[in-house]
Design a protein around this nucleic acid. Structure first.
Length: 298
DNA sequence: CGTTACCTGAAA
DNA sequence: TTTCAGGTAACG
């Protein structure tokens, strides 16, 4: 569920809550062992115990909880994962899958209905990450950097935006929103974007992600922050899950299609299929002139 | 490239 | 009962 803005919101909240806090224990609930990706709860617990958390980093949709021994707890929330910071006595949330016991009787809880989320313990955050594209809110993310990832690709631009190897952190909500803001049809081939369209898409990606962060993320279904509070970004979306509702800009009816296997929402009037540059054969006048480009006067 | 699997609950 | 879900990895 959580995309870059939701994960960044969690990162910002989590860091001051867990910095300098000592880890007294760690446990995984029965039936949830797969979130450790093959490692045992006791193995992780042995390494974590007596460490303290320091800072919290984010890369794409991954969180890196740094430890004072240099190791990193890398968390991915996938579809329904969330982290909660609570006092130990506080009633345990349903679907709590793992718990970090901290000093002073506090807990960092990992909650995840669908059990797709992951927790890794590694020497470097990098060790737990797959190949990821540039951070879209960093200085290195330029229209040209975006184009380097998209050029030559024939897949729909929507699918390309969801591919974390192209740009890190965009998910289904912000992909649809960025395409709406840049007036691009989600099915346009990624490599077909012209320079102005690339600049528009680059700006739209940054705009929509920044808005998402500013509103504390989007809570359409399961997402909540570290305190259990919902974000506000769902009140500001232009197309995502607004199927059959009128477009804010032109009043046309928002449509829902499937692109790259994912629900995709767009305005057919604001985001039309781009017309081909070439004219239609029947209306194109017969070619005049010779091979060297010269045209004889009639 | 598109499709399926991974899980489980909520909504249709 | 069936469909759908903010993500990714593994298929064919």
């Amino acid at each position: 569920m959580p995309e870059l803005p939701e994960v960044e919101t969690v990162r910002r909240q989590l860091e001051p809550l867990i910095a300098e806090r000592r880890i007294l224990g760690f446990r995984v609930m029965p039936g949830a062992e797969r979130l450790l990706r093959g490692r045992s709860g006791t193995e992780i617990a042995d390494q974590l115990t007596a460490c303290a958390f320091t800072t919290v980093d984010r890369r794409g949709k991954y969180l890196g909880l740094n430890l004072d021994n240099g190791q990193v707890v890398v968390v991915h929330l996938r579809m329904t994962g969330s982290l909660r910071f609570r006092a130990a006595g506080c009633e345990e949330e349903p679907f709590t899958r793992a718990v970090f016991e901290l000093d002073h009787g506090d807990q960092l809880r990992f909650i995840d209905v669908r059990k797709f989320g992951t927790i890794d313990l590694v020497e470097q955050m990098q060790d737990a990450l797959p190949e990821l594209g540039p951070e879209p809110l960093s200085d290195g993310f330029t229209p040209d950097a975006l184009w380097q990832a998209l050029r030559g690709r024939t897949q729909p631009i929507k699918a390309a935006l969801l591919d974390q190897r192209n740009v890190a952190g965009i998910g289904n909500i912000y992909a649809d929103e960025a395409l709406f803001l840049s007036r691009l049809n989600p099915e346009a081939p990624a490599g077909s974007l012209r320079p102005g369209e690339r600049r528009a898409l680059h700006a739209a990606i940054q705009q929509t992600l920044q808005d998402g962060v500013a509103h504390g993320g989007a809570s359409f279904r399961d997402y909540t922050d570290v305190d259990g509070a919902e974000g506000e970004q769902q009140y500001f979306v232009r197309v995502f899950r607004r199927t059959d509702k009128p477009c804010d800009d032109c009043d046309a009816t928002i449509r829902r299609i499937v692109v790259g296997g994912r629900a995709t929402h767009f305005c057919p009037r604001c985001q039309p299929v781009r017309q081909r540059t070439r004219q239609i054969k029947s209306t194109r006048p017969a070619r005049r002139g010779s091979a060297d480009g010269t045209i004889k006067p009639r």
